[in-house]
Design a binder for these strands. Sequence first.
DNA 1: CTGTTAGCGCATTCAT
DNA 2: ATGAATGCGCTAACAG
Lengths: 348, 348
Amino acid sequence: MSTIKEVAELAGVSIGTVSHVIGGAVRVSEPLRRKVLAAIRTLDYHPNHIARSLKTRKTLTLGMVVPDMTIPFFPQVIRSAETAAHARGYSVIAVNSDDSPARQKEVLSLLRSQRVEGILLVIASGHGSQAQIPKLIESGIPVVCLDRLPDGIEVDSVCVEDSAAAEMGVSHLVELGHRKIAILTGPLTLRNERERLRGYKLALEKAGIAVTESLVWEAKLDQEDVSAMCREHLTHSAKRPSALFCTNGVTGLGALRGMAACGLSTPEDIAFVTFDEITAEDIFRPAITSVVQPAYEIGFRAAEILIERIQAGPTQGPRIEARLPATLKVRESSTGATAVRVLRSGRR
Amino acid sequence: MSTIKEVAELAGVSIGTVSHVIGGAVRVSEPLRRKVLAAIRTLDYHPNHIARSLKTRKTLTLGMVVPDMTIPFFPQVIRSAETAAHARGYSVIAVNSDDSPARQKEVLSLLRSQRVEGILLVIASGHGSQAQIPKLIESGIPVVCLDRLPDGIEVDSVCVEDSAAAEMGVSHLVELGHRKIAILTGPLTLRNERERLRGYKLALEKAGIAVTESLVWEAKLDQEDVSAMCREHLTHSAKRPSALFCTNGVTGLGALRGMAACGLSTPEDIAFVTFDEITAEDIFRPAITSVVQPAYEIGFRAAEILIERIQAGPTQGPRIEARLPATLKVRESSTGATAVRVLRSGRR
DNA sequence: CTGTTAGCGCATTCAT
DNA sequence: ATGAATGCGCTAACAG
């Protein structure tokens, strides 16, 4: 790996001049410029980003923490954040927290050591994953939370309109005539899960249906746990709901497995609606009615907001809370019909 | 962000001493040690990885380039590579190349500037994506290629046993009685696609079936292109094959869409086998018979090999070419039966 | 327009 | 066992 010094020697100029042609900010005469460029090419020189960062105190790097990038929603978000960042000259380092607060703490520490200029954070679902956010912000690292929002912490955020989106999904079931509708959520320590639950209750209330606590099922974000919970609740046909609403893709898939284990199918035995698309719904049966989040836009907006924060400096501008509308894709699992219908959520 | 100097001042020691307690290599007396640790905590000090790297010339970072992390296979590989790397004290920076050689060149350059110590590379499918590998290696950055292998380039690699895996999938169709079997591949500029095609031909030859070139369909790694190609080949029932084998998840899903567009379904009209699982096959119908790659192990092994290379120094050890066995999951799309059967590929 | 130089934060000799 | 000094590669004044 050659250095700027070697380039300077080969080109017969000073390292300052080389730096100038690389930076582009200071004018350099054409002949020298060409010589420098030639030297760079023959040496296959790549500026040492490490040294540059040390000097400029800018890494042009964003950190991003997600619970598990094998969950299909997250790669979409990462990719769009990367796209937005790249357009502004930033790179993104994406890491998994395994949905563990301890591991999240580790990776955040690592990201700080790497001197990322800002962090895109999808918090882990366990307890204590929020405590680290204020320290980050105090230390001058802007944070934007995505998808999962922390509680009572002043921080920029972007996510779907959780409550409205859930309400839309549940109202759809209500309109179909269902009155005994269960909801299967992830940990209610997560604010967005609580918001989605709130949307569920709102939908029922508007329809004049009483909320039955025994139809609110809270599971861990774990296939096995979700599946077991479903089996438990669904075995007795008397207590069985006529419809089930799941608040995310993981619980949605787990619920389908649990239902299958009970010999139940959708929509015949139970009408089914879930957050997130969990397969290629145009190809596979049953096609699942889904509340679809604008994953691409969530990541893109989050990166935009973060970079604006970084470039604005330690200014205490107003907190930004972007809430994006979801789309309801009505399919077979709720209506029994094969045609697809698309609805858009909007603020009331 | 506090510095080592501030820690030293607060603790009332020299920066050398602070560095020693952080590094752990040099012994420091217990009283001073405690004072330093306390200072670190109260200042919320995070060692500047940038400065450290500049000094030590080690970044403890691996770069990883994949075509598109929204393709489900890749997040698995990234995650397992990250796991292996982390266990050895390394971080992984994963970036997308958009399957474009130009973009791949950019991100590789960026990774070099970041001074990653090694690179895990899944090459882009376009022309010229291989040319950059020798330059990397010459410049002292070890490279391990995964999944997609370059041609005629000496480089460590790990992937599935492409030919044997494809042969297993096609032989399965042969055993089911099919004699007119089409294969839908990605770009044959990719060696692994050619290998999979070779496995297809091998399976046919062993069964005494002549290879018909009109049944070899080469598509771009793009849903639309694949789908269009299928529609074109499948409209005339006379020329239609009785079975179709797809060499990867993208072409597999595209083919299913193309078939649906022609009003064809599997397994009724066409028996179907594909590389990679493309949905939750236990839940959705039709359940697709798949040649499953050991994604986790591929990423893990690749990271292991890369780190060994890094730590061995510029030693020219023998090239490593890990070839991992695939698994055939026999499902409804080929047999029509709902039961699942699992076969393991092995070297002949 | 070009060259010289002073650090950025840290690990690491080398003295003490 | 501790501290002072050096330099990693680079950018950004500044001087010429």
